[in-house]
């Protein structure tokens, strides 16, 4: 079970993600610098971490999405590879075209950093199969631009194809229909604003986030 974490200038959740993968998979994650042109062989999951890649200049995630490594990540996803983007990673996935819609400035205009209750909307994905349908859990959010927007057609498509992975129980940022995370058409790319990798150790407040990484382990082994 091999995982890779992409590191951009300004990433700051890359080590948390690597720790989360190692805890669930029992194998060290490989850290991949954004200027590398290719991913290591036989990678099972590529993760794009939270942070402020390239200082959030131009638009959050816009410059990172055009970094040399991202073409390899896009090719990996198009071949059916698993890709997880958290927070800034979600913004990068949207800017790279791997996930639809857009993430705007929070409706309250403030950076929001607090625990938030999430509702598991679908268990039909490699990332959520270890959750119960409708299962609620508390997870930290920390972002300024997490206000997910989609037009009516896209919303109907996301709902119709059961591609909303998580919703906020109380909306912290103005996201349409309380959306906190969405899946790609083949369900193997997940982008989410909350930080499950920060909820992975009893000493840090709980282990509810570990369920996402355990889900992945089960899904990839079954695959």
């Amino acid at each position: 079970m091999k995982s890779a974490v992409i590191v951009f200038p300004g990433s700051n959740c890359d080590r948390d993600l690597a720790v989360a993968f190692e805890r669930s998979f029992g194998v060290k994650s490989q850290m991949i610098w954004h200027k590398d042109a290719s991913l290591p062989d036989n990678i099972d999951i590529v993760a794009i971490p939270g942070g402020f890649s390239f200082g959030d200049y131009l638009r959050c995630g816009a410059i990172a999405a055009r970094a040399p490594i991202m073409q390899s990540v896009i090719n990996f996803a198009n071949r059916g590879g698993h890709v997880l983007g958290i927070c800034n990673g979600f913004q990068v996935l949207i800017e790279s075209g791997l996930l639809p819609g857009a993430l705007m400035r929070n409706s309250g205009l403030k950076f929001v950093c607090k625990d938030q209750v999430l509702m598991t909307e679908t268990t039909n994905s490699p990332f959520t199969n270890a959750f119960g349908k409708g299962q609620k859990f508390t997870v930290p959010i920390a972002h300024h631009d997490g206000n997910y927007i989609a037009d009516d057609n896209l919303l109907a498509k996301l709902n119709g194809e059961d591609r909303v992975a998580f919703r906020y129980v109380e909306n912290p940022n103005g996201s349409v229909e309380n959306i906190a995370g969405i899946l790609s058409e083949n369900r193997r790319v997940l982008g989410m604003m909350p930080h499950p990798e920060r909820l992975n150790d009893p000493a840090l407040g709980g282990v509810d986030g570990a369920r996402l990484f355990d889900s992945l382990l089960g899904a990839v082994i079954a695959n």
Partner: peptide
């Protein structure tokens, strides 16, 4: 025009 602009509102 159809995208809300919270900064403009502020």
């Amino acid at each position: 025009s159809e995208v809300l602009d919270p900064q403009g509102k502020a």
